[in-house]
């Protein structure tokens, strides 16, 4: 075993740059060779405050980005930090998305799920893949990463769906997914990737299964360790740790988890319905 892998003490590094995507969603950029793969996550320590898992939006071997929404007390403290302030990282952890060269992929993002899927789109395009990038959000101002995704070139098509119709399709992004698959062009779709609210991912996995297409989903569960020890993120009824054997699971496998789309657990292990 590689001894280096056993060091999971957080390493503190300065925030290089903060990009404000919206008032409550910021991208934190770091100059650091994280050696992560699309879909992996890291544990981010806000010194003296808390530590939370975040999926990695971008990693080119020189810098990496985390796109984070202000949703609770920990992220509220995080949003008080400035460029140059120190923050702790440990990881990367978890499984990653897999794709084959030159294939047609559909990426389905709900809300800030667009960030990690951007990392996948970027890597897949480099491998000659054709990508349909479908983002869903409540309204236009919450749609993320449009410019960055569009800048990936002509092999990537950005589709938007909003609940209020303020941009793109009025309705669910899964409806765009179904349209793409049903179109002539959709015959060649080799895999569907989803990241976002669990009900959206469940729908995506069901659509994929019905059409005989493979899918990969990134599950979200409360985590403490991030490396398969604490047992906080174990899913029923298989008992597998989301942090270790996920967070990216084959869609078919995720559909087999009895709790998938039904409930998750809080920091004390108590069931919470979605």
């Amino acid at each position: 075993m590689d001894v280096k892998n056993f060091n999971t003490i957080p390493e503190t590094i300065p925030i290089k740059k903060i990009v404000k995507e919206t008032d409550t969603i910021w991208t934190f950029q770091f100059e650091y060779n994280l050696e992560s793969k699309p879909g992996q996550f890291l544990m981010l320590w806000i010194p003296g405050v808390d530590e939370k898992p975040f999926s990695i939006a971008y990693d080119d071997g020189k810098e990496f980005w985390l796109t984070i929404a202000k949703v609770g007390s920990a992220t509220e403290e995080l949003f008080k930090l400035k460029e140059g302030d120190l923050i702790g990282i440990r990881g990367p952890f978890g499984t990653h998305y897999k794709w084959e060269k030159g294939k047609h992929l559909v990426l389905l993002a709900g809300g800030y799920g667009a960030a990690p899927l951007y990392g996948l789109a970027r890597a897949a395009v480099e491998d000659g893949c054709k990508v349909d990038f479908v983002v869903g959000a409540r309204s236009e101002d919450l749609l993320l990463y449009e410019e960055r995704v569009s800048a990936l070139g002509s092999n990537v098509t950005y589709h938007a769906a909003t609940d209020d119709g303020s941009k793109g399709h009025e309705g669910y992004n899964t409806e765009i997914l179904e349209e793409i698959i049903a179109s002539k062009d959709g015959e060649g779709v080799s895999k569907i990737y989803a990241c976002g609210p669990e009900m959206m991912m469940k729908r995506a996995a069901e659509i994929a299964r019905d059409k005989g297409i493979k899918s990969e989903l990134a599950l979200e569960r409360y985590m403490k360790c991030g490396f398969g020890v604490c047992g906080q993120c174990c899913v029923d009824e298989t008992g597998v740790c989301v942090c270790k054997e996920g967070t990216v699971f084959d869609g078919e496998r995720a559909l087999g988890f009895s709790e998938f789309g039904k409930y998750h657990r809080d920091s004390m292990g108590k069931k919470v319905e979605w």
Binding site: V3, I9, M43, E51, S267
Partner: peptide, 14 residues
């Protein structure tokens, strides 16, 4: 119910 501590709650070395 017992909340426990905030993270970081664990890490290791060799």
């Amino acid at each position: 119910e017992h909340k426990g501590h905030k993270n970081p709650t664990m890490f290791g070395t060799e």
